[in-house]
Amino acid sequence: EDASLPAPQNISILSTNMKHFLTWTPVMVQGETVRYSVEFQGEYERVYGGESWIPISECSPIAATVCNITEDISATVAYRLRVRAQLGARTSPWATLKGFFNRITTSLTPPVMKVIADGYHLLVELEDMGPAFQFRVLYWKKGQERRVQQKVLKEVSSVLHLDTMEAGADYCVKAQTYVEAINRSSSFSQTQCVRAQGGTPMWL
């Protein structure tokens, strides 16, 4: 095996909302397209599987310097990842991510949320973030911050009916995500307030 190609550098993971990507800096060869192959090793492979590595076929080979590893990081255990460069028959040594990656460290962002006052009905629309996500929605009548109510959504339906509002009153809503597989929650979204229809017109 002619290993004259330099190994990729700066291997790192970008993981947000349970979507995980391996990235690295390109190996430059003048006038040539260098390709890369990515492999992973779960804790099972390390402890019981003879430290074997498993290729990720969607990224073996690729010309890009990023690989979506989400589908293979499908357990809450420590994974190792590695990438190497190849150009024709020439391959580089493997470059291995420093340390391990466990999906428990994914960064969770607050959900994108839209609050709607539909007449007297307080509705909320939440972004579908995939099957791993549940949502905790808090809502209250403005001025009654001590009487916060909560709804937990295990699955995202298009619109959620939260409450029937008093005429002309203001209601506020905020939400966070919860990922049961890693037992973690995001921070809360910005609070959004809406006003129910009706109430005493200003000029009376």
């Binding site: 804790e43 099972y44 492979e45 599987g49 076929s57 589908e71 499908s74």
Partner: peptide, 29 residues
């Protein structure tokens, strides 16, 4: 399953091996 079964299930099919790895690591967890 973790100690005896999965290690003897390696196949020539890479996709199958990836899914077995996924199951094995979930079982380990």
């Amino acid at each position: 399953y973790v100690g005896k079964v999965f290690k003897h299930c390696k196949t020539e099919d890479l996709y199958v091996n990836r899914k077995i790895s996924s199951i094995a690591n979930s079982f380990l967890s």
